[in-house]
Amino acid sequence: MTPSTSANPRTATRTVAVVLAGGSGQRIGLATPKQLLKIAGKTILEHTLHIFEQATSVDEVIVMMNPGFVSDAEAIVRKAGLDKVSRVLPGGTSRNATTQLALDALSHYSAANTNVLFHDAVRPMLSQRIIDDCVTALERYEAVDDVITDVPTRSRLRRGQTPQAFRMSTIRDAYAKAWNDPDFEATDDCSVVLRY
């Protein structure tokens, strides 16, 4: 007789990295988005995407790009052979709108069995350890930072850690509540989860 498996086997969890590349570069006076600037022969976006391409804990990557530069990002993905990138989509008019568009694009996945990592495209110095630590933490927590007590306004921030990692059900529920709030205003995705 063979041993039986558990009556409720754990369903496999899918991890999707959403690379946020919707910025325009205007805050620092650029005509081209900073994620398309080249460093060591590659765009910053390509450096960032290679990190997620190599991450064994990430199954898929979606790029949310500045709407005027979607074809540029698609060309970068094609030329670099980035197989995990499933889609390059236009971002929204704000960080929160872009996150919502990404969540809508992932609506075909089960919210109960999907993790989402949101990462700023212009942060290419991300380590594999940080990605793995975020994904591992989501086995126990609904959001990686469950000790956040306050998030300052974005104009006062100079540095922030990404990726911000969530179980899909948590971030979807938080945004559903946020959009119903007439006073909705958030610095980033962690602040949406914290508030809602």
Rank of each mutant, 00 (worst) to 15 (best):
Y141M: 03
D120P: 01
G68C: 06
A17T: 03
L101T: 00
T99N: 09
P90N: 06
M65P: 04
T56H: 10
T93H: 14
D83G: 08
V147K: 08
V135Q: 04
I76S: 07
L106W: 03
I39C: 10
E142V: 00
R123T: 11
K79L: 14
M125F: 14
M64A: 13
T98G: 01
P124D: 05
R140M: 12
P90Q: 04
D72C: 09
P90M: 03
R140H: 15
L20G: 00
I28E: 15
G92M: 06
K84V: 07
T43M: 01
I76H: 08
M65F: 04
V144M: 14
R87E: 15
V77G: 06
V16I: 14
R78N: 11
Q35H: 14
A97I: 12
L36M: 07
V70W: 05
L82S: 10
V116E: 03
T48G: 00
A143T: 10
T114I: 02
G22P: 10
D133Q: 13
S57D: 11
R129T: 08
V144P: 01
L30H: 11
A111S: 12
A31P: 07
V19W: 04
D146Q: 11
T15W: 00
G81M: 11
F69Q: 07
I130C: 05
S107N: 02
V88H: 10
G41Q: 02
V18F: 07
G25Q: 06
A143S: 08
D146W: 15
E60V: 11
Y109W: 10
V88D: 09
G29S: 09
V70D: 05
I76K: 08
Q26I: 15
Q100E: 14
L30S: 13
L82I: 13
H50F: 14
R95T: 15
A31T: 15
S94Q: 11
A75C: 03
T43L: 09
D72A: 14
T15F: 02
A31E: 15
G92Q: 04
L138Q: 08
H119V: 01
I130N: 11
V19N: 02
I39Q: 12
E139M: 12
T15H: 09
